[in-house]
């Protein structure tokens, strides 16, 4: 691999990393409307459920399907915006008072690039997340899993056009999912 391509890879990976860190900050600082601006109008935001199935059929059946099936969450920008609006009513009891949330994003890999490493127009990424939620007095949840994101370049900015969240749970150990992954 040529020296300049290696450099371009490094720069791009660190650019995407910075983007995800900033995103996590916006969420954890509850700057939700600014967070919404990072999303593409056509975003597909999907959190399938994971089923216990026999080895060999897991690739096909472990995840619940987005086509014709039920997931934890499977939606676009309209519903995501409504989630933000609901929190901002101040009477959304599941987030009132607000939970304290920290997103840890790690193991980032750019798995696919369109338009070349130097002037990419779109990228696919994989990473791990750990989300800590603490609310009211001592209520505490940890959510750990994998995230597959697709970003596209719009002018000077990246926009998230696909987010698939593999939450490593079967029966959800939390009572609800009121936060953003």
């Amino acid at each position: 691999m040529a020296e300049n391509e290696r450099l371009a890879r490094l720069l791009l990976t660190s650019e995407i990393e910075a983007f995800f860190y900033e995103e996590a900050d916006l969420l954890d600082l509850r700057r939700y409307s600014e967070w919404l601006e990072l999303l593409h109008d056509d975003i597909h935001y999907w959190v399938p459920m994971l089923r216990n199935v026999k080895y060999g059929s897991h690739e096909q059946y472990e995840e619940t399907p987005t086509k014709g099936g039920i997931s934890w969450i499977d939606e676009g920008l309209t519903t995501l915006t409504q989630r933000v609006q609901q929190i901002e009513t101040g009477i959304h009891w599941a987030e009132e008072p607000l939970s304290r949330i920290s997103h840890l994003v790690t193991n980032l890999r750019v798995s696919k690039v369109e338009g070349g490493w130097e002037k990419p127009t779109a990228v696919d990424t994989r990473c791990r997340f750990l989300i800590y939620r603490n609310r009211v007095e001592t209520e505490t949840d940890f959510f750990v899993g994998k995230r597959e994101d697709s970003l596209v370049r719009q002018g000077d900015n990246w926009k998230i056009i696909k987010r698939k969240v593999i939450l490593d749970q079967n029966v959800l150990t939390a009572k609800n999912l009121t936060f953003f992954f």
Binding site: V47, G68, G69, I70, S71, W72, I73, D74, E75, T79, Q82, R83, Q86, H92, W93, A94, E95, V136, L172, A174, K175, N176, L177, T178
Partner: peptide, 24 residues
């Protein structure tokens, strides 16, 4: 199915508040 998911279950905008009330 999109409507079902945004209304109900642990991530449903309606049901979240029910679960919180029953919890506390």
């Amino acid at each position: 199915r999109h409507y079902y998911m945004r209304y109900s279950g642990p991530a449903g905008l309606t049901e979240q508040d029910d679960l919180e009330n029953w919890n506390y």
